[in-house]
Design a protein around this nucleic acid. Sequence first.
DNA 1: AAAAATTTTGTAAGCGGTTACATTTTTTGT
DNA 2: ACAAAAAATGTAACCGCTTACAAAATTTTT
Lengths: 341, 341
Amino acid sequence: MNIYDISKLAGVSTATVSRVINGFDNVKPATREKVLSIIASQGYTPNAFARGLGLNSMKTIGIMCADSSDMYLAKAVYYIEGALRENGYHCILTCTGYERKSQRESMEMLMSQHVDCIILAGSIFIDKDDSNNKYIYKAADSVPIMLLNANLDHKNIYCISCDDSAAMEKATEFLLDNKRNNILYLYNSNSYSATKKLSGYRKAFEKRGLKCNEDYIRYFNGTSKDLEKVCGFVTELADKGLKFNGVVASEDFLAVGALKYAVRKGIKVPKDLEIIGYNNSVLTVCTEPELSSVDNQLETLCTNLVRICIGALSGESMPQKTVFNGELIHRSTSASSRKTK
Amino acid sequence: MNIYDISKLAGVSTATVSRVINGFDNVKPATREKVLSIIASQGYTPNAFARGLGLNSMKTIGIMCADSSDMYLAKAVYYIEGALRENGYHCILTCTGYERKSQRESMEMLMSQHVDCIILAGSIFIDKDDSNNKYIYKAADSVPIMLLNANLDHKNIYCISCDDSAAMEKATEFLLDNKRNNILYLYNSNSYSATKKLSGYRKAFEKRGLKCNEDYIRYFNGTSKDLEKVCGFVTELADKGLKFNGVVASEDFLAVGALKYAVRKGIKVPKDLEIIGYNNSVLTVCTEPELSSVDNQLETLCTNLVRICIGALSGESMPQKTVFNGELIHRSTSASSRKTK
DNA sequence: AAAAATTTTGTAAGCGGTTACATTTTTTGT
DNA sequence: ACAAAAAATGTAACCGCTTACAAAATTTTT
């Protein structure tokens, strides 16, 4: 069953059927009705390949993400896919892992599929050495590229992010304002957004004329998100004599690890130790006490990313940088009686 | 740059170029080399649409899942996508939500994309009233259907699942064997696999000649996975006078909610209350004490699903039912000093 | 060395849509 | 009522690849 069969049954040309299918308005209402009814009665659906060949587009968008089972990225994929589907687009999802080589391969695969746009979900794809970003620039020559939580100045590349630096600064400030000057900073990535977060932590100290002690900034080198390891890591730091009355982490699971340490050692939270995570994931409500965390507005980021994406695809002029603000969510691991300014 | 351009540069016909690209062996080695070098020098990649039109296949597989941000499903998608990519297939992901209508639409969308196979990740797509499963049977007429954690007897439908009934039975037995006869059963879905789990709970009682009290089987009607609500729900049950010394849940988050209740009320876990969740998700290690849970071997299920899928697509005869066994993972909410038989 | 068999290559017709352009039908203006 | 303008429809080329079949080149047989 193809467009030709339909055209014969309806007694019109294939062009007219095509016009009806694509919702053009230059078809006589009576003709449209007739064609539509034939299509319905035959259960006909246009062949996507043929359509793609003709239009050189299949209304398909590629999503690259390092690991779609990561809670944060899974949510991102979910929001993005949903918003795109509402706009009539399909998603080819590819999980790239954390190595540049496989990321490049994924990119090539998507290009060969002639997707209309590629969304890079996460800052892991951007290299500090800009010469390694050529694979992205090359793709941007033929198709718009959307960057979630990352930044790259280039034609046809659109960046949507949360001001992670400001958000992390807010969280750190909150602790500093409660005279907690020994704040452990836990992080486990050097990606663009991770770097931003760290700079926010530093800025909070600087703004108050305080020097931030580099000993308190700790990189956790865990590939898998193993909470027991994180807890052990924090315990070790404490055992080595590091005194801290605050913890700020670049991801919730790191904060949960710190909280595990506190609960096990019987340290009172938040009285003797305040802990703030990042991402406001489900993990925050699994623990007891529940974890305070920075919400970086993932849903807003994603819906706006798609909005801009759709706009760019339909030829509208869209802003290349869009930045939202994070929000500090107080639960039970921070002294929420105080106010965030 | 298309196949015609390449053929001209190489001084051969498009048919020969096509043969080279597709690795046919009836091409003279010298010719093959020449064509290959031209292709490489021009950076030519075949147009996927045209290829799809010709072959009526684009090496693309559709994945339907209700909500890819659900931790369990996110992992499923991750494993499936990875295994398919290794086999040279691409994935179109579509999140359908929980309503039959939108699920049907997703199915139609995938069919119109002419995917080579459709994977239904989760039992939510199967209706107890079989007449509502026609949309799946219809799809199975044109393309193999893979069912994860579900079961349907039909040509061209392949089912891969964990024996959830046996696994849940094992968990329940474990508690019963410790004289915990008042076991609260929490569930929040009536899907195929959820029903299986419940039947396992019941079977454990029956096998011991015990009657299981229907009052202890509780449906939690929460659409979003709101832990606070679950905790409140359990608290309410207890306040109403329901006495229980064990909790078994069809999903980890329900068990975590029960654990929250226990921690808040100061009930000793596992001494006075044992709790066992299901899925062995990250949530299990976020809590303190950490949650015991049934691991239903998701990774094994997914890799086997893909193996069978690839086999079926290449015309091999594949088993239509594949069942694995779950495993009870003891952490700190069950008396792990005892042995699981 | 000619005939037969085999391998390699080429020709051209699909695959199923879209769309520029041509043609016909309908509407509008006078 | 007739010409001009606008709307509706049709024709056919095109998108880039695959492949059945035909043809040419090469190898094997006798």
